[in-house]
């Protein structure tokens, strides 16, 4: 195994390649979704994750099969990063019958128990409470698993978020609270809505570690999550990570984003982009050759073409199954 060096020596080359592939997959998937949505044919709302890839991929690189990732409504990226079948992910966004949730959930509710991916959730902030439950069960059943709850800056202002932080702390639950602060709760700026501006500082009030990292830097996210996860696994309780980041598209597709400062997205794309940062680092450090990364880009491009063709061609759920899955006895 060729181990990477310096700052990034914690991960093997294979792991780094996989992280890059994950981020590129999400980027191309979301860029394509942007185009497809504008062309019609994608039902409901979609919230795109482009720009924030390092966050979900940096989290998931630290997770095992025993762990649970609590997704948010900006669900596509984390679902792909956690390893859910990307064909089923796309089909769920298109509300197809063999989508991840059989077309019952759609874009904002991607959920895949077998991948340890839970509850993309429209009730923002709830994932932290649900994650506490997964963590309690993991501890009671001694599975060794932890829960990592993704939550946005918007969700961080929910009462359930604060209540759950308190509960996680007094019970020392194996939970990592990953706040993806992308600067906007829908159209309202975090700078306006977060008292003091920093969500990680709230951790101190709940007697848990709280750190802030650049959410566009895969390595920074990876390291912060590694530390928090180790703490959780060791039985020392929860931690909070605030990963500051920006989305490249609107709150949902169709959002004209007139609330955003002119040039903000362009600036992030140009100077802060997670894929660019990653490439620079691994190429400069001579860990991975440009050609290898380019080859991945090509492969992912082809994959995404197939994923979309497959999803668009797939049938909607059978109407006869409309009432299935309400109760456990419905099978």
């Amino acid at each position: 195994m060729d181990t990477a060096q310096g700052l990034i020596m914690k991960q093997s080359k294979t792991e780094l390649l996989s992280a890059y592939r994950g981020m590129r997959t999400i980027r191309i998937f979301e860029d394509r979704m942007h185009v497809e949505f504008a062309g019609g044919g994608v039902p409901g709302f979609v919230h795109l994750y482009a720009g924030q890839e390092a966050s979900a991929v940096g989290v998931c690189a630290n997770l095992t099969d025993a762990d649970i990732l609590l997704n948010t409504h900006r669900a596509h990226g984390p679902a792909i990063a956690r390893g859910a079948d990307i064909f089923a992910v796309a089909k769920e966004i298109y509300c197809r019958g063999d989508g991840l949730c059989r077309g019952r959930g759609g874009s904002a509710h991607l959920h895949d128990v077998k991948s340890g991916l839970w509850g993309a959730n429209s009730g923002v902030g709830s994932g932290v409470a649900l994650g506490c439950g997964a963590a309690l069960a993991a501890r009671n059943n001694e599975t060794g698993g932890i829960a990592v709850a993704l939550v946005g800056d918007g969700g961080a202002n929910q009462g359930v978020f604060l209540e759950a932080m308190n509960l996680a702390s007094i019970w020392k639950l194996p939970v990592v609270i990953m706040v993806e602060n992308n600067g906007y709760a829908e159209a309202t700026a975090a700078d306006y809505a977060i008292a003091g501006g920093d969500i990680h500082k709230r951790a101190a009030a709940f007697d848990m570690p709280g750190v802030v990292v650049d959410g566009h830097d895969y390595f920074a996210v990876y390291d912060a999550v590694l530390e928090a996860a180790e703490r959780a696994r060791a039985g020392h309780g929860p931690s909070l990570i605030e990963a500051k980041q920006r989305r490249y598209y609107g709150h949902f597709e169709g959002d004209a984003q007139s609330y955003r400062p002119k040039g903000e997205v362009e600036e992030y794309r140009k100077n802060r982009d997670c894929l660019k940062q990653f490439r620079q680092k691994v190429i400069l450090d001579d860990l991975i050759a440009t050609a290898e990364l380019d080859a991945i880009d090509g492969e992912v491009g082809e994959l995404i073409d197939r994923v979309y063709a497959d999803a668009i061609a797939a049938p909607f759920p059978s109407e006869g199954e409309f009432m299935q899955y309400i109760y456990a006895t419905d099978t």
Partner: peptide, 11 residues
């Protein structure tokens, strides 16, 4: 919320 999460985990 915790109880729901615990239930989804088999408790």
């Amino acid at each position: 919320g915790l109880a729901i999460g615990a239930a989804a985990s088999g408790l």
